[in-house]
Design a protein around this nucleic acid. Structure first.
Lengths: 223, 223
DNA sequence: GCAAAAGTGTTTCCCCTACACCCATGG
DNA sequence: CCATGGGTGTAGGGGAAACACTTTTGC
């Protein structure tokens, strides 16, 4: 029987690839809908993905591909699931991201598509899981605000939840719940442009300081 | 500018290691408590872990280490989180597992310890995450039954939830909720051994067929 | 008959739901 | 003044939480 020498080099090498499902709300259409960011390739669309560099942090790799390929920064980014190695020994670590589409136009080669868009089987599997997580998590963590501009109106917030959850919500009860949680700061009224009809909406900001304080006391967000 | 040739070999190789937090309830003590399975090593305790073989499925690797090192089979096993590569390029994929301690004695070199036991920093981080997930998930999925023998009593089930959630639960309301969900089958009464005091408890089984049927209708478990 | 453990029912209260009207602005 | 969109209050019902006594067994 021989002793196996200790080695500092890698054993059983795998390639690790991070893959991202980026969600954003399309407020232009009515009703607003949930879109996912895809890259146009020769044979259709793919979700953004990239090989993780040696020693690179996973979330950094995800942020890197979204910055380089889609010009996106400062998004909510959360790890989702790690998939088994495929035939080439590639392990995919899936992330999902939330972003406000704001003013930004999508970078060249990227497009926003209403979910579900046409994708390959693996991308679909991952997107399904991301949607499931998003629909569940958006109800007990205030992550939805990442998909809005810093300042937003109550109807926008409600439209966001309706788009994600795929159901319509009672406007009175929705506003009541949101305001009663005490995590929104009223910061003025919406300015009207030409063509804007109706009463100006109140503008709110998400009060993160307040939210963290409440969370520390055991309170939890809930829609 | 030169073309990079396509390669089928791995790029940016990493070693992947799965790591497991196995939870079980200690019904011997009163009140019963939540234990985690640890391996005794030279310098203390560690969570079970193993390098994932080339082409091996992640969950298979987790099941493999728990079978080989701890003699455990047929446990509830769920992926938890994937950690960034460390200095040696090792990426850890964390799983947590639930098992009924039943009759089984722990295999040699393994011990059950009340959480939290003394562990290294990485193991502690992972265990914290596993506990958080367990405490949350046990409330909306019927995974707790994996920590009981097939046949169990209502007080056992309640003790399990009390041990995991770290709070005491009203016995009447608890039984009411559990029975009203219609996922428990009454299968008899507990046999008393010498030394057993008090009224015999009703024995139940988890009715998985019924649970799946309800879930398909959009119903969801909730404690 | 006493101690130990298990089983069961009722009331209260709060929160979620359902629901309709008035207000502010642009044209 | 009319159309458009935004804001607000109330009443009722259902489910969760609080709460105490009876039953069965071993000793």
């Amino acid at each position: 029987m021989t002793m196996t020498p200790k080695r500092s080099i890698s054993l059983e090498p795998h390639t690790i690839r991070v893959q991202c499902a980026v969600f954003g709300i399309d407020f232009e259409k009515s009703p607003p809908g949930l879109d996912v960011l895809v890259l146009r390739e020769e044979a259709g669309f793919v979700l953004p993905s990239v090989v993780v560099g040696a020693g690179e942090q996973l979330v950094k790799a995800a942020a890197r591909v979204l910055r380089d390929r889609a010009g996106l920064r400062d998004l909510y980014l959360e790890q989702l699931y790690t998939y088994d190695p495929d035939k080439e020994g590639i392990v995919r670590v899936a992330y999902y991201a939330l972003t406000s589409r704001d003013d930004r136009d999508p970078a060249v080669g990227t497009e926003w598509h209403r979910v579900p868009p046409g994708l390959g089987a693996r991308d679909v599997t991952m997107l399904d899981r991301a949607l499931l997580r998003l629909r569940s998590k958006v109800r007990y963590e205030p992550i939805g605000f990442s998909m809005l501009p810093d300042r937003f109106t109550m109807p926008q917030l409600r439209n966001l939840y309706e788009a994600i959850l795929g159901m319509s919500l009672d406007d009175r009860n929705f506003a009541k719940r949101m305001l009663s949680m005490g995590i929104l700061r009223r910061v003025g009224e919406s300015k009207r442009g030409p063509g804007d009809q109706g009463r100006p909406a109140t503008i709110y900001e998400f009060d993160n300081v307040r939210y963290e304080a409440l969370k520390k006391k055991g309170w939890s967000f809930e829609v």
